[in-house]
Amino acid sequence: MRVVDWGWALLVVLVWGVNFVVIHVGLVDVPPLLLGALRFLLVALPAVFFVPRPRIPLRWLLAYGLTISFGQFALLFSAMRVGMPAGVASLVLQSQMIFTLLFGAVLLGERWQRHQPAALGLAGIGLLVLATQQQAGGMTLLGFVLTLGAAACWGLGNIVTRRISQSGPVDLLGLVVWGALVPPLPFLAASLWLEGPSRVVGSLQHLSTSSVLAIGYLALIATIVGYVIWGRLLQRYPVAEVAPLTLLVPVVGLLAARVLLDERLQGVQWCGIALVLAGLLVNLFWPRWRLWVHRHG
Rank of each mutant, 00 (worst) to 15 (best):
T100D: 04
L91C: 04
F73D: 09
A222L: 13
L291F: 08
W286Y: 15
F40P: 02
W178L: 01
G253E: 07
L156S: 12
L127I: 15
Y237R: 07
V51C: 14
V242H: 05
L141E: 07
V51T: 14
Q113W: 11
L61H: 01
V145W: 13
V22S: 11
V176W: 05
L127G: 10
L207G: 08
L245P: 01
Y227K: 13
Q96M: 06
L265K: 01
L291V: 12
L141P: 07
L127H: 09
V51M: 10
S198K: 15
R81K: 10
L220D: 09
L58E: 10
A257I: 01
M1A: 06
L35W: 01
R232S: 12
V12W: 07
V177I: 11
M1T: 08
M1W: 04
Q72N: 14
G87A: 08
G87C: 00
V21S: 01
V268A: 11
S211E: 10
A123L: 04
L35Q: 03
A63F: 02
L142F: 09
W289D: 02
R59N: 07
I23M: 05
V106W: 11
L76R: 01
P183H: 06
L102E: 01
L142S: 10
G137Y: 10
I224P: 04
A136D: 13
A219F: 06
V201R: 14
G149S: 12
T246W: 12
T246Q: 15
A63N: 03
I273W: 00
Q266E: 14
Q72V: 03
P186E: 10
G216T: 13
W60N: 12
V30L: 10
R39P: 15
F77C: 09
Q166F: 00
L108W: 11
L192E: 06
L45V: 15
V182K: 04
L254E: 01
L175Y: 09
F70R: 08
S191V: 02
L76E: 05
H294Q: 15
P184K: 12
A256R: 04
L61S: 02
Q135F: 13
A119K: 00
W16G: 03
A136L: 06
L277I: 13
R59H: 09
T132I: 03
G231T: 11
S211V: 08
G168A: 04
R163S: 15
L234F: 05
W289F: 14
Y217H: 11
V268E: 06
S198C: 09
A256F: 05
W112V: 03
T67V: 06
R39T: 14
S167Y: 02
R53N: 10
R163P: 02
A150M: 05
F20Y: 14
L107I: 15
A190M: 11
Q235H: 12
L45S: 11
A74E: 06
V22D: 09
P57H: 01
G168I: 06
T100Q: 08
G202I: 04
T147K: 11
S69N: 15
A44T: 12
Q266H: 10
A274G: 11
Y64S: 06
V200G: 08
F77A: 02
